[in-house]
């Protein structure tokens, strides 16, 4: 066993560093005993989550039986058209919206991608059934992809970096502005084959101004502290 050179406490014989001050133990005469049992186990425990598992099972059963019932009715009784595709698609979409949230709670990023994918799929089913897929590729898909992308980007940055509240607000406005421009671009390209913007220019500029103001505030530490003090919650 060793003593911490920095704070003078005696350390456990297995310790390779001081838990108090994070100083590494360097004791050639009496090195840390790597064979010794550590005072605490290394395995993390996790809490059993009965509630959400039961709910997930219930939702799965409900959506699956709705889809199955629709399919059977479609095949056996009301045979005009393949209308059950709408119901089965909707069930699948609602299932993806609800169940992964209950089970995969920690991996939010994956859930966002799944939701984006299943929404695109449902719109595709509708487009396929109505036999006009141009609006799907022209408007629906770009809008869904952009929305998924922006939400994903926001959550990714939240998770990956430590962010201040000002940065978050700036990010939201930045994304809103870009999203508005993106929506108008795809609508105009679909309708008139032109890549120009009008109303979204106003939205985009306002958002840009807000982002600029916030960035200035963030850069200026005195201003930032003042804002943080007034907005803290």
């Amino acid at each position: 066993m060793s003593y911490c050179v920095n704070c003078g406490v005696e350390l456990h014989k297995s310790a390779t560093f001081c838990p108090l001050c994070n100083t590494v133990v360097i004791n050639p005469g009496n090195p840390p005993d790597s064979q010794a049992k550590t005072p605490y186990p290394a395995e993390m425990g996790s809490v059993e989550n009965v509630n959400s598992r039961a709910a997930a099972l219930l939702l799965t059963v409900v959506f699956a039986s709705i889809a199955l019932a629709a399919l059977l009715l479609n095949l056996l009784l009301f045979k005009e058209g393949f209308w059950s595709a709408f119901i089965m698609g909707a069930s699948l979409m609602l299932w993806v919206f609800t169940v992964p949230v209950l089970i995969l709670r920690p991996s939010r990023l994956l859930i966002i991608l799944l939701d984006g994918a299943v929404t695109s799929l449902y719109c595709f089913i509708i487009a396929h059934q109505t036999e006009d897929t141009s609006w799907y590729y022209g408007i629906a898909l770009p809008i869904i992809i952009m929305l998924t992308g922006f939400v994903f980007l926001y959550c990714y940055i939240m998770r990956r970096f430590k962010t201040s509240i000002l940065f978050r607000i700036a990010l939201i406005f930045g994304e809103l502005g870009s999203y508005a421009v993106g929506i108008e671009l795809s609508i105009r390209y679909f309708l008139y084959d032109s890549l120009s913007i009008r109303w979204s220019a106003v939205v985009g500029t306002s958002c840009l101004i807000i982002v600029a103001v916030l960035t200035t505030v963030m850069k200026n530490s005195r201003l930032r502290e003042e804002v943080q003090r007034r907005l803290h919650f």
Binding site: V9, H12, P19, L20
Partner: peptide, 11 residues
Amino acid sequence: PVRIESNRKYR
């Protein structure tokens, strides 16, 4: 005198 035991990980 104090002896320390911990479950903290090296930072």
